[in-house]
Simulated assay, not measured.
Amino acid sequence: MEAAIGLKPLKIGNLVAKHPVIQGGMGVGVSLSSLAGAVAKAGGIGIISTAQIGFKDQDFGKNPMAANLRAIHSELKKAREKAPQGILGFNIMVATKEYASYVKEAVKAGADVIISGAGLPIDMPKFVAEAENENGGSEKKERRTMIAPIVSSVKSALVICRMWDRKYHTAPDFVVVEGPCAGGHLGFSREQLTELGADTDHVAETFDEPAYDKEVRGIIETVKSFAEKYKKHIPVITAGGIFDHKDVLHQFELGAEGVQAATRFVTTEECDADIAYKEAYINAKEEDIVIVKSPVGMPGRAIKNKFLERVAQGPVKVERCFRCLEHCNPAETPYCITKALINAAEGKIDEALLFCGSNAYRCEKIETVPEVMAALCGE
């Protein structure tokens, strides 16, 4: 199995992806079965976001948790139908209320991989092991779910690896490094983004790439030490600002064995979001992409619109709590992030939080997933 010239297939445990490209998880409703299935069919790794994944369920308003857990199974099943031989999994935010239940349900549904960020997934190995034991059967080893934390610094990588080592005597199956040019929630403080020149409206000109490249190399070395201890191969996947083949090659030069791209897949025919959301990317200018404060408690990157202008004037009253975040008080939050993201997925652009990566303004047209995959891999 060969990928494009110069790029090797991505091997994670017993999984082998023809192309070393993971499609980043985007919620609410941006990367569901359609997008993830298409990416897996095209030879990459397709990721479904569990963030309010059941928002289309008729019972979501009454019992969002139950709707979400059901949707984990139904969305993965639909993605498998599109890519029977493909590699598929979930992105699950640590900040999610009832995080353990989501992880266990993803394992029981048959996820090949689980990627977790928006917090430190300290106990993910425990939840996965419990779910696999509950599944039981002779297929247990064959169906083992590969797991990865999302880290942004040497410090966070070291904390996760040490905790997994000490508490569960294990190491990650792979590690995703998400840099400051990524979309959605960022694993950096506003001060760190400023230091790296990644908080401006012109990140392409101000981002201190050499400084963060050094951090990426440090993370790779940190992970390597735990790979040696556990005598296993732990590939490091880099993310954040990956838009074209040149970006991919640069990450491989740093020592990465794969990349995770999200923004580039939004403007595809197969993306699950409404066409209005995709057109918001195509119509965005570089100065429209800004850093916002999310109710999750960390900075995020989004497209400036009427909704953000409204939020800047004061809190938007929360009419109903969907119990999505572990640390969210409806009486104090500046707005309901679930409602704002559902509006985005449904194309209600003026009432939506439009998460995006720093390169969203470079999206010029609607493409297909195979076309994006070919561009990233230099075919």
Results as ranks from 00 to 15, higher is better:
2 E>D: 09
8 K>Y: 03
9 P>I: 01
11 K>Y: 08
14 N>D: 15
18 K>E: 15
22 I>L: 14
22 I>G: 04
24 G>A: 12
36 A>V: 12
37 G>C: 08
37 G>T: 01
47 I>K: 06
48 I>R: 02
51 A>Q: 14
52 Q>F: 00
55 F>S: 14
56 K>H: 15
67 A>R: 11
89 G>L: 04
95 A>R: 02
95 A>L: 08
98 E>G: 02
99 Y>C: 04
99 Y>E: 02
136 G>Q: 08
137 G>Q: 04
139 E>F: 11
141 K>D: 15
143 R>W: 08
146 M>S: 07
149 P>W: 06
166 R>T: 13
174 F>K: 02
180 P>Y: 01
192 Q>M: 03
196 L>M: 02
206 T>D: 03
235 P>T: 07
236 V>T: 13
237 I>N: 04
246 K>G: 01
253 E>K: 09
268 T>Q: 09
271 C>N: 05
288 D>Q: 04
292 V>N: 11
292 V>W: 12
310 R>Q: 14
310 R>I: 10
311 V>F: 05
312 A>G: 02
312 A>E: 13
320 R>T: 15
326 E>M: 03
327 H>I: 07
334 P>I: 09
340 A>D: 04
345 A>C: 04
348 K>H: 14
353 L>H: 12
356 C>T: 15
361 Y>K: 03
363 C>W: 02
366 I>S: 05
366 I>R: 14
368 T>D: 13
373 M>G: 07
373 M>W: 05
